[in-house]
């Protein structure tokens, strides 16, 4: 029995005016059924591009080498129409900014129904609507049967992210990819959404990839962690090992730089090389 997701030697290259740039370089990791993996890194680390590559959503200017296999099927060799049928069905994704990720012109119900019907041939609107309401109830949106007809702008930020999660879960996917799902949210709402993601995993057995810049967030959710820096995975380990005994100097420095809420640290450790490297890399 193979792992749910196997990423093997993944390299993502962008064509730019200055020539090709590798934003992800020979990345490999595996994710078992129902497991959770955190990918953590600063801006420019390639963590978001990795998540898009898993979903088959890389922009047309990017090219990809290596393998991304879901349940033993290599997605990189599959025609787009086949990948599309898996996308949203076997694997679903939620994004950083729930407001702009929902279409303002349609009710949230319609947008959830649409996700469900895209992968369930012959489902009536009525059935799909029932699924949408159930999905909204599962993510604890109160009064779901009424709220299903509301538009995204009528929801608060946290509720919108719940809608996104409901949409992703409507097809009962094996894998949920969450790209900075709480970064745009207030800290109290963040805590609720993180709890919800945990609960969903427990109850549905969905595997989770959590992309975040926030080490503390990753530490609360992920069983395994990949630390990325400028496209390279510098360290990967089970969460406990990584946070209690980090091996790579970058991981150590990163952990040193995180401000703590529990106490004041005399002098926070910065990572100068990161900043200068980002500039050399052509980042404005």
């Amino acid at each position: 029995m193979s792992a749910l997701l196997e990423v093997d030697d993944l390299t993502i290259t962008f064509r730019t005016a200055q020539g090709p740039v590798d934003v992800v370089d020979q990345l490999s990791f595996t994710l078992e059924q129902g497991a959770s993996l955190g990918i953590v890194g600063e801006s420019g680390s390639g963590k978001s591009m990795t998540s898009l590559a898993v979903m088959g959503l890389l922009p047309p200017t990017a090219s990809l080498r290596g393998r991304v296999s879901l349940d033993g099927t290599d997605l990189t060799n599959l025609p787009e129409s086949k990948v599309r049928r898996m996308r949203g069905d076997r694997m679903a994704m939620i994004f950083q900014d729930p407001l702009s990720s929902l279409n303002p012109y349609y009710t949230v119900g319609m947008q959830i129904e649409e996700a469900y019907r895209a992968h369930r041939a012959g489902v009536t609107r009525r059935q799909a609507r029932k699924v949408a309401i159930e999905a909204m109830e599962r993510v604890h949106i109160a009064d779901a049967s009424r709220r299903v007809d509301h538009y995204p702008h009528q929801f608060s930020g946290g509720m919108r992210q719940r809608v996104m999660i409901a949409m992703a879960l409507s097809t009962e996917p094996d894998l949920l990819v969450a790209d900075e799902p709480t970064t745009a949210l207030d800290v109290t709402v963040q805590a609720q959404i993180l709890d919800l993601l945990q609960e969903v995993r427990r109850e549905t057995g969905t595997a989770l990839i959590l992309i975040s810049h926030d080490l503390a967030v990753v530490s609360e959710i992920a069983e395994d962690v990949v630390v990325m820096r400028q496209g390279v995975a510098v360290e990967q380990a089970p969460a406990e090992r990584l946070f209690s005994d980090p091996q790579h100097p970058y991981t150590r420095a990163l952990l040193d730089a995180v401000p703590r809420i529990d106490d004041e640290i005399g002098e926070l450790r910065g990572i100068d090389s990161v900043e200068s490297a980002a500039r050399v890399g052509g980042k404005p």
Binding site: L215, A216, V217, S219, S244
Partner: peptide, 12 residues
């Protein structure tokens, strides 16, 4: 506020 577990922090 999300936190890294204190025992992990201590060990580190």
């Amino acid at each position: 506020v999300p936190r890294i577990r204190p025992e992990w922090e201590r060990a580190r």
